[in-house]
Amino acid sequence: LKLEELTVSELRQQLRLRGLPVSGTKSMLLERMRG
């Protein structure tokens, strides 16, 4: 599964599971997911 294919709400869910901030735009969330 490519990160880009996730919805913003799915990205936020994944970030929350990792204890990361869930604020910002989709591109910011993607950068955060990539670490």
Results as ranks from 00 to 15, higher is better:
Leu1Gly: 06
Leu1Tyr: 14
Leu1Ser: 12
Leu1Asn: 15
Lys2Trp: 11
Lys2Thr: 07
Lys2Pro: 03
Lys2Asp: 04
Lys2Glu: 14
Lys2Ser: 10
Leu3Asn: 08
Leu3Trp: 05
Leu3Asp: 12
Leu3Arg: 05
Leu3Tyr: 03
Leu3Cys: 00
Leu3Gln: 08
Glu4Asp: 13
Glu4Trp: 00
Glu4Tyr: 01
Glu4Val: 00
Glu4Ala: 02
Glu4Phe: 02
Glu4Ile: 04
Glu5Trp: 01
Glu5Pro: 07
Glu5Met: 04
Glu5Lys: 11
Glu5Arg: 09
Glu5Gln: 08
Glu5Gly: 06
Glu5Asn: 13
Glu5Leu: 03
Glu5Tyr: 05
Glu5Cys: 11
Leu6Met: 15
Leu6Arg: 04
Leu6Ser: 08
Leu6Cys: 08
Leu6Gln: 09
Leu6Asn: 11
Leu6His: 05
Thr7Ala: 04
Thr7Glu: 07
Thr7Trp: 04
Thr7Gln: 07
Thr7Cys: 03
Thr7Ser: 13
Thr7His: 04
Thr7Asp: 12
Thr7Val: 00
Thr7Leu: 01
Thr7Gly: 10
Val8Met: 10
Val8Tyr: 03
Val8Asn: 06
Val8Pro: 06
Val8Gly: 05
Val8Gln: 02
Val8Ala: 15
Ser9Val: 12
Ser9Asn: 15
Ser9Met: 15
Ser9Tyr: 07
Ser9Pro: 08
Ser9Cys: 07
Ser9Glu: 15
Ser9Thr: 15
Glu10Trp: 01
Glu10Ile: 01
Glu10Phe: 00
Glu10Thr: 01
Glu10Lys: 06
Glu10Val: 05
Leu11Trp: 00
Leu11Pro: 02
Leu11Ala: 02
Leu11Asp: 01
Leu11Glu: 00
Leu11Val: 03
Leu11Met: 07
Leu11His: 01
Leu11Gly: 02
Leu11Lys: 02
Leu11Phe: 00
Arg12Pro: 02
Arg12Ser: 08
Arg12Cys: 06
Arg12Thr: 10
Arg12Phe: 02
Arg12Gly: 03
Gln13Gly: 09
Gln13Leu: 11
Gln13Ser: 10
Gln13Glu: 12
Gln13Phe: 12
Gln13Trp: 08
Gln13Asn: 11
Gln13Met: 11
Gln13Thr: 15
Gln14Pro: 00
Gln14Met: 14
Gln14Val: 10
Gln14Ser: 09
Gln14Leu: 07
Gln14Asn: 05
Gln14Glu: 13
Gln14His: 10
Gln14Tyr: 07
Gln14Trp: 11
Gln14Arg: 11
Leu15Arg: 01
Leu15Pro: 02
Leu15His: 15
Leu15Lys: 06
Leu15Ala: 15
Leu15Ser: 10
Leu15Glu: 06
Leu15Gln: 07
Arg16Trp: 11
Arg16Gln: 10
Arg16Asp: 07
Arg16Pro: 00
Arg16Gly: 13
Arg16Cys: 12
Arg16Phe: 12
Arg16Glu: 14
Arg16Lys: 15
Leu17Glu: 12
Leu17Ser: 09
Leu17Lys: 13
Leu17Arg: 11
Leu17Gly: 09
Leu17Cys: 12
Leu17Gln: 13
Arg18Pro: 07
Arg18Met: 15
Arg18Thr: 09
Arg18Tyr: 09
Arg18Cys: 10
Arg18Ile: 05
Arg18Glu: 11
Arg18Asn: 08
Arg18Lys: 12
Gly19Glu: 09
Gly19Val: 00
Gly19Arg: 07
Gly19Thr: 02
Gly19Gln: 05
Gly19Lys: 09
Gly19Asp: 05
Gly19His: 10
Leu20Gln: 03
Leu20Phe: 07
Leu20Gly: 02
Leu20Val: 03
Leu20Ala: 08
Leu20Thr: 00
Leu20Trp: 02
Leu20Lys: 03
Leu20Arg: 00
Leu20Cys: 11
Pro21Glu: 13
Pro21Met: 02
Pro21Thr: 09
Pro21Arg: 06
Pro21Asp: 12
Pro21Val: 07
Pro21Ser: 11
Pro21Gln: 07
Val22Lys: 03
Val22Asn: 05
Val22Gly: 10
Val22Ser: 11
Val22Gln: 12
Val22Cys: 09
Val22Tyr: 15
Val22Ala: 14
Val22Ile: 09
Ser23Gln: 11
Ser23Asn: 13
Ser23Asp: 15
Ser23Lys: 10
Ser23Trp: 00
Ser23Glu: 14
Ser23Gly: 14
Ser23Tyr: 12
Ser23Leu: 06
Gly24Leu: 00
Gly24Pro: 01
Gly24Lys: 00
Gly24Ala: 01
Gly24Ser: 01
Gly24Val: 01
Gly24Trp: 05
Gly24Arg: 00
Gly24Phe: 01
Thr25Asp: 15
Thr25Gly: 09
Thr25His: 08
Thr25Leu: 03
Thr25Lys: 10
Thr25Glu: 13
Thr25Ala: 08
Lys26Gly: 01
Lys26Ser: 01
Lys26Gln: 10
Lys26Leu: 11
Lys26Trp: 06
Lys26Tyr: 15
Lys26Thr: 05
Lys26Asp: 04
Lys26Met: 01
Ser27Tyr: 01
Ser27Ala: 12
Ser27Val: 06
Ser27Asp: 15
Ser27Pro: 10
Ser27Thr: 12
Ser27His: 09
Ser27Phe: 00
Ser27Arg: 11
Ser27Glu: 15
Ser27Leu: 08
Met28Gly: 04
Met28Cys: 06
Met28Gln: 15
Met28Asn: 06
Met28Glu: 15
Met28Leu: 12
Met28Thr: 13
Met28Trp: 01
Met28Asp: 11
Met28Pro: 00
Leu29Trp: 03
Leu29Phe: 03
Leu29His: 07
Leu29Gly: 04
Leu29Asp: 04
Leu29Ala: 05
Leu29Gln: 04
Leu30Val: 12
Leu30Ser: 02
Leu30Ile: 15
Leu30Arg: 08
Leu30Lys: 09
Glu31Gly: 08
Glu31Ala: 09
Glu31Cys: 01
Glu31Thr: 07
Glu31Lys: 12
Glu31Asn: 09
Glu31Leu: 04
Glu31Pro: 00
Glu31Trp: 01
Glu31Val: 00
Arg32Asn: 13
Arg32Ser: 04
Arg32Leu: 04
Arg32Glu: 10
Arg32Cys: 02
Arg32Pro: 05
Arg32Met: 06
Arg32Gly: 07
Arg32Ile: 04
Met33Asp: 06
Met33Asn: 02
Met33Thr: 03
Met33Ser: 07
Met33Gly: 07
Met33Ile: 12
Met33Cys: 09
Arg34Ser: 13
Arg34Met: 05
Arg34Ile: 07
Arg34Trp: 03
Arg34Val: 09
Arg34Asp: 06
Arg34Leu: 13
Arg34Tyr: 07
Gly35Trp: 05
Gly35Arg: 05
Gly35Asn: 11
Gly35Phe: 08
